[in-house]
Nucleic acid binder design. Structure first.
Lengths: 349, 349
DNA sequence: TGCGTGTTCGAAAACGTTTTCATGCTACGG
DNA sequence: CCGTAGCATGAAAACGTTTTCGAACACGCA
């Protein structure tokens, strides 16, 4: 059926060893035979069988990518970064997604057994050490956006805390003192880090942290929308709202507008991630830019280095910087919040 | 290093054939030996090597997924559908993305040689027949969202034309006669289909098609934004704008708001795809719901059926229905468009 | 007892490569 | 002329499975 190395050898009148040697350029072969082999391979359209090869070499030329879920623009960007970097190094990508439960994660990791040379693992809601226990065998791993307690593994993260701290500082500098936060999923590592950045900024400014200003969210647009509805019923209203990601900020924005509150005149609003849409809302959204593509690319780089190194390199922990992006949704605190809510169309900025 | 079938055989005091037979349940084995094998495999933590297995069986248990690019929420949803369906049938996913040029597509397809049992191929900007010519060998293929001239291959598409026709009809029924369309990428199959739906609806209503009402776009938010800026300079303004996808509608919405035009009082606006965000804009966006997850799931189903059938089934062409979703961004034509542009805050619906 | 039949199981081939090992050849110095 | 080193090359082993083939054995029947 398929053309094998034997067919090439027969046609070139050489042994299969010679064919292998020519094609892999592994040692010297006479010019005459090299020509014959190349010609035969070309004519027959020979493609080596990667399965047979990897049975022997123990290399598959594939990387596993395991993520717990897939949502919106974030994941698309991440995959872009990963794929570009992998393609550059001639690796295929075997990806597995959607495992909410631990046993699903286990099944996903087990199914990669002997199929990949290394694994990119993103488990924001589970410590890296716990996830790695489900790996079938001793395979190189690099974590993305994951909490790691020790330093036994390589990990690439964003500076979630730093980014959120910068956002909070920005609001404080604008005079805001009542800053509500729509949080991310309770179990999520990055959400906790962002919250930590908020507390750091408050502390630095000598402001007290009050858990009453936190509204639980789950990174969905709907959560942002509902959070604002909750928040509008509070006795004292915030002058600024900090959403733990852009998606929730979008939801918040639409709830605010429906309620007749103007952004940023009545309430300042900011998000996190700086997804492409953030610049196209009205007003455009102040956010913190996380280099999503870079995250994927760096992780691949790290993993491939690990795979190709003869001696396993020391595990590295990489934290990518997050940049504050100030747009039109944040402004100095106005002080006329309550009246504005009553007469929504009375003023125009 | 790794535990093999030999280790299990030795420990269970049987031959490797027997181990294989027990583990694959391929023919009768005495109860005693079966027990011993199972026990030994369990104790050693034996996992069969899929590479060795597939060298013999010619099956890899993997599906290739090849898409030209990855953008936003659409792709995330698609992947969700594909992954869920594949996992259900115990297939891994090997995905390859980002090939703008034909030779990149070729390289991507070639790299799947002998690595996958079948390929899911999405090439909206290239006819299926042209893409399939780059496949390394005779491997089952199912197309997604791709133009297919003949009927030699299986394909799963949306009813792009029908959906867009429904949107256009909806606007016509609301009294709109000047309906501008922000088109998709010129080469894109789905964009062309949507445009065809627009023309069909016009024709059915006895209205003339005028290419002057078309503004070129490329499915990006930016394109929608810029399209509206173009359009506002026209001597005669449309009463409704139909964007070829939601992303462009979002961009258009923000440009309209910046220009002081109200949606839907001054201009009606609709999109296509009904991404999750569509219900969270203000006003919420009238759109056409495409069953993205289903697209992926059906394609996988189709492909796996093909793979597992002993005789290749007749290629099927599947067109998934698209539902009109009417929200707040479309309204009966007002007739006060021009004055409204001058006094944007004059009315409140 | 001899023979056919059916059942369980092990030996060995096969899959398509890479790599080791041995062999034959050439060239060269003594 | 001979031994040896170096080199090109082919034969064969190896990778870890599945599957075919045949052997061994038990059993029923003549």
């Amino acid at each position: 059926m398929s053309v094998t190395i034997r067919d090439v050898a027969r046609r070139a009148q050489v042994s299969i060893s010679t064919v292998s040697r020519v094609l892999n350029d592994t040692c010297r072969v006479s010019e005459e035979k090299r020509r014959r082999v190349l010609e035969a391979a070309e004519q027959l359209g020979y493609r080596p069988n990667p399965v047979a090869r990897s049975l022997l070499t123990k290399e598959t030329g594939a990387l596993g990518v395991v993520v717990p879920f897939v949502f919106g623009e974030f994941f698309a960007e991440l995959l872009n970064g990963i794929d570009a970097a992998a393609q550059e190094r001639a690796f295929c990508l075997t990806i597995s997604t959607s495992h909410r439960h631990e046993h699903e994660l286990r099944a996903a990791l087990q199914s990669l057994h002997k199929r990949v040379d290394g694994v990119l693992l993103m488990t924001p809601e589970m410590p890296g050490e716990q996830a790695v226990a489900h790996l079938p065998e001793d395979v190189p791993v690099v974590f993305l956006n994951t909490r790691l307690s020790g330093d036994g593994y390589a990990v690439v993260n964003f500076d979630n805390a730093g980014g959120f701290r910068a956002l909070t500082r920005h609001l404080i500098a604008l005079g805001h003192r009542r800053i509500a936060v729509i949080t991310g999923p309770e179990a999520a590592f990055d959400a906790a880090e962002r919250l930590r950045g908020y507390r750091m900024a408050l502390e630095e400014a000598g402001m007290a942290f009050d858990p009453a200003w936190l509204i639980p969210g789950d990174y969905s647009q709907r959560a942002g929308y509902e959070a604002v509805q909750t928040l509008l019923a509070w006795p004292e209203r915030p002058t600024a709202i900090l959403a733990s990601n852009d998606q929730m900020a979008f939801g918040a924005l639409s709830a605010l507008r429906e309620a007749g509150l103007r952004v940023p005149e009545d309430v300042s609003l900011a998000g996190f991630d700086d997804v492409p849409s953030a610049r196209y809302t009205v007003p455009s959204l102040t956010s913190a830019r996380v280099p999503i593509r870079d995250l994927g690319a760096r992780a691949v780089q790290c993993l491939v280095d690990h795979i190709q190194a003869e001696t396993p390199p020391a595990p590295r922990s990489l934290v990518l910087p997050v940049d504050l992006v100030v747009r039109d949704s944040t402004a100095p605190v106005g002080g006329r919040l309550h009246t504005a809510a009553i007469e929504p169309t009375a003023r125009k900025a």
